[in-house]
Amino acid sequence: GEDLPLPPGWSVDWTMRGRKYYIDHNTNTTHWSHPLESGPSSG
């Protein structure tokens, strides 16, 4: 998808195989999909 801006506290990194993933430092979790690309989340 597009390179959307990341929310505060997020960063992007790549695996050893070159796969892009996103790090949420607020909750110390990692995600394969961009936080703003996922569907609407409630709460």
Rank of each mutant, 00 (worst) to 15 (best):
G1N: 13
G1A: 11
G1V: 13
E2Y: 10
E2Q: 11
D3S: 11
D3G: 10
L4T: 09
P5C: 00
P5V: 08
P5Q: 08
P5K: 08
L6V: 05
P7F: 01
P7K: 01
P7D: 01
P8G: 05
P8F: 08
G9K: 03
G9E: 01
G9T: 01
G9I: 00
G9D: 03
W10L: 00
W10F: 02
W10I: 00
W10T: 01
S11N: 04
S11I: 05
S11P: 01
S11W: 02
V12S: 06
V12M: 10
D13L: 09
D13K: 12
W14M: 08
W14N: 05
W14Y: 15
T15L: 02
T15Q: 02
M16L: 14
M16I: 15
M16K: 15
R17P: 07
R17H: 15
R17Y: 15
R17K: 15
G18C: 05
G18Y: 04
G18D: 05
R19C: 15
R19A: 09
R19F: 14
R19Q: 15
K20H: 03
K20T: 04
Y21R: 04
Y21G: 00
Y21A: 01
Y21W: 03
Y22M: 00
Y22L: 00
I23W: 06
I23V: 09
I23M: 06
I23H: 05
D24H: 05
D24L: 02
D24T: 00
D24V: 00
D24Y: 02
H25K: 06
H25Q: 06
H25A: 07
N26I: 08
N26T: 08
N26M: 07
T27I: 01
T27A: 03
T27V: 01
N28M: 09
N28T: 04
N28Y: 05
N28V: 04
T29K: 06
T29G: 01
T29V: 05
T30G: 05
T30E: 06
T30K: 14
T30Y: 15
H31Y: 09
H31G: 01
W32A: 04
W32M: 05
S33I: 14
S33Q: 14
S33T: 14
S33N: 14
H34K: 04
H34D: 01
H34L: 08
H34I: 06
P35Y: 02
P35V: 02
P35G: 02
L36A: 09
E37N: 10
E37K: 12
S38A: 14
S38V: 11
S38G: 12
S38E: 10
S38W: 11
G39M: 12
G39I: 11
G39Q: 14
P40T: 13
S41F: 09
S41Q: 12
S41P: 14
S41V: 11
S42Y: 13
S42F: 12
S42A: 14
S42I: 13
G43Q: 12
G43M: 12
G43A: 13
G43E: 13
G43I: 12
G43F: 13
